[in-house]
Write a protein that binds this DNA or RNA. Structure first.
Length: 739
DNA sequence: CTCCTTTGTCTTTTT
DNA sequence: GACAAAGGAG
C-alpha cells in the first residue's frame, strides 16, 4: 500500500485530493514526500498525470520533485515546474495575443535597472529624487499588484511625485517592449493579462490543470496568488503547502497573508498540520521552538520529534571574526576525524560579505569548500559580455545588451557617439539596431561611421553564423572575431586568467546544453540561463563544506550546521532592529528558525566581540535570539576550557572589551592570554626571495627587488611586467611565488 | 576617447 | 574592504 510508510496526518493529506487543502508543514515534516505520494495516489485513482500541476519555487526543487515522482510512477506527464518557467512556457505560445513577440527575451535585474536608469534620465528627473533601486522596487510592487502604468497614473493623479513615478513606469515599460523583453515581474503579470483578455486560453489551462499543488506557499506574492486563483477556479482542486514560520521573503513582495488567509480565500478549505519532524534531534527542535515562539503573528503549532535528544547546542563567543573562522575550522576538522564528511557540514551566515573571512580560514587550512551565491556566475562581467553578444545575435532589438557590447572590446565607439545615435533613435522612433542599419542618416558621425558600420556587419555576420552552427561554436566565433579572448590573454594578470577560466566553463555549459537539451535553440539556451539561480547548480558530490546565506539554505538539510555572527546588528540585522515596525524583526526571527532547523545532529552557534563590517571594526552584543534559547539547552565552549565567563547578563567580556581591543594594535600577544588564550600573530611565511618571480591578483607577474621586515608581514618591492614598480605587503596583498 | 582618481554604496535575492 | 559609478586630466 502506497500510504504504508506515512504517519496519520501525512496519510490524510495524501488521501484528500478533492477541494481546497491547506497543508501546514513544519520544517522537516516530510512535505516533499507527501506531495509526491499525493501525486502518485491521484494517478492510482485514475487521474491522468497530464491533468496534474505542481509548482515549486526553485528549479532545483522542481528537478528533485520530478525525480521522486518518477520513482513512484514511470512515464508520467505531470507538469512540475516553477511559477516562472511555467509562465514562460505559456507565454512563448500565446503572448502574441496580447501584442508581444513570441521570441521575447528575459531581462535580469541588472538589465532592467539599466533601462530604468535610462528612463529616469530621459525624463530629465534627478536620480537623487528618484534613485533607481527605489523606483525599481515601486514598479515591482505595482506589477505585483497587477497595476498597469495607466492605472498607476490615474491613481497618482494630483500627487506630483507619484505622477512622475507613473511616468517613469510607463516609459520603462515601453522600453521593455521595444527591446522585446520581459522583466521577471512581467512573466507573471503578462500571463495573467493574457488569461484575463483571452478567456478561451484560460479555460484551456483550467481544464488541463484539474489538480494543482503549490509548494512554499508562504513565499508567494500577490500576483502569483491571483494566477493560482485563476487557474484553480474551475475545478477547485487546489492544495497549497507551506509554513508561515518559514516565510522569509516578505521584503521581496512575498505576502504572508496568502497563507494566513487561505481558508477565507478558498471557502470550504480543509487544513491539515504536519507537526512531526523527522529531521532534527529533540534539542535542535527545542531550540528552534523556543526562538520562534517569540513571534506574535503566526499560526499556532508545535513541532515534535521522536528522534533522540541529541547533543546540546554548542555556543562559543569569540574575540573577533578571524577567531570565529578559526573556531569553525577546528571544529570541522574534529568532526572530520569523527567520521563525518565535509559534505555533512554547512556554514550559514546572514550576509554574503561574511563568507570572505571564513573562506580565508578554510583556504589556509586546506579544507575544501563551495560557496553558493555571492557574485553569481552569470553576473560576472566576462560572462555578461559574452551573453550580451548572444542576446543581440538572437534579438537585435535588445538595446541594453547592444549598448553593453558596442565598445567591448574597445573599438573606439565611446559615449559621445552612442549618445548621438541615441538621440537619433528617439527623434525617429526607431530602435538602436535599426539606427545602425541607417547610419548615413545620422548626422555628425565623422570618422566613427566606419567603426559603426564594421560593428553592425560583425553582428550580422554572427547572426548568419548562428543559423548554421551550434551555440558553443558561436561563442568561440564571437570570442575569436572580437578579439575578446586575445585581449584577456594579453592582460596577463591573475584576474584575467580567472576570467578566461570562467569563459571556458561557460563554453562547457553550452556544450552540455547541446548534449542534454531537447530544444537546442539559442532561444532556449538564453531562457534557461535567465531562469537559473545559484542554488540550482548546487552539486553535492564532492566532499566539501557548503557556505551560503541562511536565505539560500531554505529547503536543505545538513547533519552539522554552523551559524556564525549571532550578534545584534548582524543577526538580527541593524535595519530590522531600528525599524519602527515589528514585522522586520519577526522576519529575522523566522530566518533564525529556518537556519536552526537545517541542522540534523549538531548545531554550533558563535558570536564575536568585534568584527570587520563595511570596512570598519564594529562591536556587537550577542544576539537577542541567543537570549531566547533556554540556558540548559546550550553548551558553552571557551577557548581555554578553564576560564568560564559567567552566564548572567553582564559578562566579564563586555567589562574587558575596551581594554582588550586597545591591545589589538599590540603585536605582543601575551596580553591576550589571560582571557582568551590567543596566539600572538605569527610571522607570515614567504616562499620567495629577491630575484624570484611572484604573482599578484591585481598587478600580475613581476620580479622581487627588495624585501623588508614590517611587523608580522614583509614589505616587498616588486617590478611588475605590466604595472611597473610597486611596494606591497606580502601577506595582505597575497603575493605568491610564480612557477 | 581613455585612463586614473575620487566618491558613494554596501541585507537577504527561490525567478 | 570591495566595487561600481562619476568626474577630471591628458
Amino acid at each position: 500500500m502506497l500510504t504504508d510508510d506515512l504517519n496519520n496526518m501525512q496519510k490524510e493529506a495524501v488521501l484528500n485530493i478533492n477541494g481546497p487543502l491547506l497543508l501546514l508543514a513544519g520544517a522537516g515534516s516530510g512535505k516533499t514526500r507527501v506531495i509526491t505520494y499525493r501525486i502518485a495516489y491521484m494517478v492510482e485513482q485514475g487521474i491522468n498525470p497530464f491533468n496534474i500541476l505542481a509548482i515549486t519555487f526553485t528549479n532545483k526543487a522542481a528537478k528533485e520533485m520530478k525525480e521522486r515522482v518518477n520513482k513512484l510512477l514511470d512515464d508520467n506527464g505531470v507538469w512540475i515546474s516553477t511559477f516562472h518557467s511555467m509562465c514562460v512556457k505559456i507565454l512563448r505560445q500565446y503572448i502574441n495575443y496580447i501584442d508581444y513577440d513570441n521570441n521575447f527575451i528575459i531581462y535580469d535585474t541588472d538589465d532592467s535597472e539599466k533601462i530604468l536608469k535610462e528612463s529616469i534620465k530621459e525624463l530629465n528627473l534627478s536620480d537623487k529624487m528618484f534613485p533607481t533601486k527605489k523606483v525599481m522596487s515601486i514598479i515591482s510592487e505595482k506589477k505585483d499588484k497587477l497595476i498597469t502604468p495607466l492605472e498607476f497614473e490615474k491613481e497618482a493623479f494630483g500627487d506630483n511625485i507619484q505622477s512622475k513615478m507613473a511616468e517613469i513606469y510607463k516609459l520603462y515599460q515601453s522600453k521593455l517592449k521595444e527591446s522585446n523583453a520581459l522583466d521577471f515581474d512581467d512573466i507573471i503579470f503578462k500571463t495573467i493579462e493574457l488569461f484575463k483578455k483571452n478567456n478561451d486560453i484560460l479555460e484551456k489551462y483550467q481544464s488541463r490543470f484539474m489538480y494543482i499543488m503549490v509548494d512554499e506557499y508562504q513565499d508567494t506574492n500577490t500576483s502569483q496568488y491571483v494566477l493560482i486563483k485563476l487557474l484553480s477556479q474551475k475545478n477547485n482542486n487546489i492544495c497549497v503547502v507551506g509554513d508561515d514560520d518559514q516565510s522569509i521573503y516578505a521584503w521581496r513582495g512575498a505576502n504572508i497573508m496568502n497563507i494566513l488567509n487561505f481558508e477565507k480565500d478558498f471557502p470550504g478549505a480543509k487544513v491539515i498540520k504536519l507537526e512531526q519532524n523527522y529531521r532534527s534531534t529533540q534539542n535542535i527542535l527545542d531550540v528552534a521552538n523556543s526562538v520562534i515562539k517569540n513571534n506574535i503573528t503566526r499560526k499556532d503549532k508545535s513541532l515534535w520529534t521522536s528522534n533522540p535528544v541529541g547533543e546540546k547546542i554548542f555556543y562559543s563567543k569569540l574575540k573577533n571574526d578571524i577567531e570565529e573562522g578559526n573556531f569553525i575550522v577546528k571544529k570541522a576538522q574534529e568532526l572530520k576525524q569523527k567520521n563525518y564528511n565535509y559534505n555533512d557540514i554547512a556554514i550559514l551566515y546572514r550576509q554574503n560579505s561574511m563568507s570572505r573571512i571564513l573562506e580565508e580560514q578554510l583556504l589556509k587550512s586546506n579544507i575544501p569548500y563551495r560557496i553558493v551565491g555571492g557574485v553569481k556566475f552569470y553576473d560576472r562581467k566576462e560572462i555578461k559580455d559574452v551573453l550580451a553578444y548572444l542576446k543581440v545575435i538572437f534579438n537585435p532589438k535588445d538595446t541594453i545588451s547592444l549598448k553593453r557590447i558596442i565598445n567591448v572590446p574597445k573599438r573606439g565607439i565611446g559615449n559621445t557617439t552612442v549618445e548621438k545615435i541615441n538621440n537619433f533613435t528617439i527623434n525617429n522612433k526607431i530602435n538602436f539596431f535599426e539606427a545602425l542599419n541607417n547610419l548615413d542618416m545620422i548626422p555628425d558621425l565623422g570618422s566613427k561611421f566606419n567603426d559603426l558600420l564594421e560593428f553592425r556587419n560583425l553582428i550580422l555576420y554572427f547572426r548568419n553564423f548562428s543559423e548554421e552552427n551550434t551555440i558553443s561554436e558561436l561563442i568561440n566565433e564571437v570570442l575569436e572575431k572580437t578579439n575578446y579572448l586575445e585581449e584577456l590573454k594579453q592582460e596577463y594578470s591573475e584576474e584575467s586568467f580567472a576570467r578566461i577560466e570562467n569563459i571556458e566553463s561557460f563554453i562547457d555549459k553550452a556544450i552540455s546544453f547541446e548534449e542534454l537539451s531537447e530544444d537546442k535553440s539559442l532561444r532556449k539556451f538564453l531562457e534557461d540561463i535567465s531562469l537559473l539561480s545559484d542554488i540550482d547548480n548546487l552539486n553535492d558530490t564532492d566532499d566539501q563544506i557548503t557556505l551560503m546565506t541562511m536565505h539560500s539554505s531554505k529547503g536543505l538539510e545538513y547533519p552539522i550546521v554552523f551559524l556564525p555572527g549571532l550578534e545584534e546588528g548582524i543577526f538580527p540585522s541593524y535595519r530590522s532592529i531600528v525599524s519602527p515596525s515589528k514585522k522586520e524583526l519577526e522576519e529575522e526571527r523566522r530566518l533564525c528558525y529556518v537556519a536552526i532547523t537545517r541542522a540534523k545532529e549538531y548545531l554550533y552557534i558563535t558570536s564575536t566581540n568585534s568584527r570587520m563590517h563595511n570596512g570598519k571594526i564594529i562591536y556587537n552584543e550577542k544576539s537577542r535570539f541567543l537570549d531566547e534559547i533556554p540556558k540548559e539547552l546550550l553548551f558553552e565552549i571557551y577557548k581555554d576550557n578553564k576560564k568560564k565567563l559567567d552566564n548572567s547578563g553582564i559578562s566579564q567580556y563586555s567589562f574587558t572589551k575596551k581594554f582588550n581591543d586597545s591591545l589589538d594594535m599590540n603585536l605582543d600577544g601575551k596580553n591576550y592570554k589571560d582571557n582568551y588564550n590567543l596566539k600572538p600573530p605569527t610571522k607570515v611565511d614567504i616562499d620567495f626571495k629577491v630575484g624570484d618571480e611572484v604573482r599578484q591578483i591585481k598587478y600580475g607577474i613581476g620580479t622581487v627587488v627588495q624585501i623588508d621586515n614590517a611587523g608580522a608581514d614583509y614589505e616587498v618591492t616588486v617590478d611588475f611586467k605590466f604595472n611597473g614598480r610597486k611596494k606591497l605587503m606580502a601577506n595582505l596583498s597575497k603575493l605568491k611565488k610564480h612557477n
